[in-house]
Design a binder for these strands. Sequence first.
DNA 1: TCAACGATTCATGAGTAGTTGAAATATGGA
DNA 2: TCCATATTTCAACTACTCATGAATCGTTGA
Lengths: 114, 114
Amino acid sequence: MEQAQALGALSALAHETRLQIVRLLVPCGQSGLSAGEIGAHVACSASRLSFHLSSLEQAGLIAARREGRRVIYSARRRRIGGLIHYLLNDCCAGDRTVGEMCRLHAPDCNCGCG
Amino acid sequence: MEQAQALGALSALAHETRLQIVRLLVPCGQSGLSAGEIGAHVACSASRLSFHLSSLEQAGLIAARREGRRVIYSARRRRIGGLIHYLLNDCCAGDRTVGEMCRLHAPDCNCGCG
DNA sequence: TCAACGATTCATGAGTAGTTGAAATATGGA
DNA sequence: TCCATATTTCAACTACTCATGAATCGTTGA
């Protein structure tokens, strides 16, 4: 991920409603949720929701596809992971202190690295 | 890290100059750099720089201390790591696809987790 | 105590993002 | 074709963020 993309993604995530949308969509994986279903969870007007969804899509964090009269949104999880990777490795140059705070191993991992 | 803190941190990072400052400070660790030294790298007016440093400090991403007539800024690396941790584990619920993009092991780690 | 230095604060103006409600577009079914 | 549903677009407004330069504050050394 390039810096410009990372800035766009950070900007998109730096909003309560949009962060909430991402949190809602990540566990849904590829199947995603329709705009209406998302709206039922985040309590904002349809037009505002559409605006936020469009911001997230432009930032590359979610994808949209039409299914009948609904538009289904799903999290682009590899992109979100790419942003985190950027923060960790490009932005923070793989700094150990930063990395130790967020290293994620499998629960049974016992490698002791870091 | 709470959502409100994460939003503040994301907002602070979502700016080219401020991201650049963090990138500059992380490798300097505790010793940090003075405002003047930072200014020499990021090419913006002193007042603008002061504003950006203050934003980053308010967001908890950097710390300031006075040394003589200089003010030394250093990255709060555990906080930055905490933000990344939040994105990975709270925001993305430890999603595997997200995690695989950004897992950081020691170069010689061979545990195979993930 | 005064001048120089390092950094911050303030006032102002421009630009951008966010919100709202109404209108428009797209799709599916009667 | 016409209507209902799902979603987006538009226009107008508000609020916030960003940038600039001048003024100010705090510290050091002559």
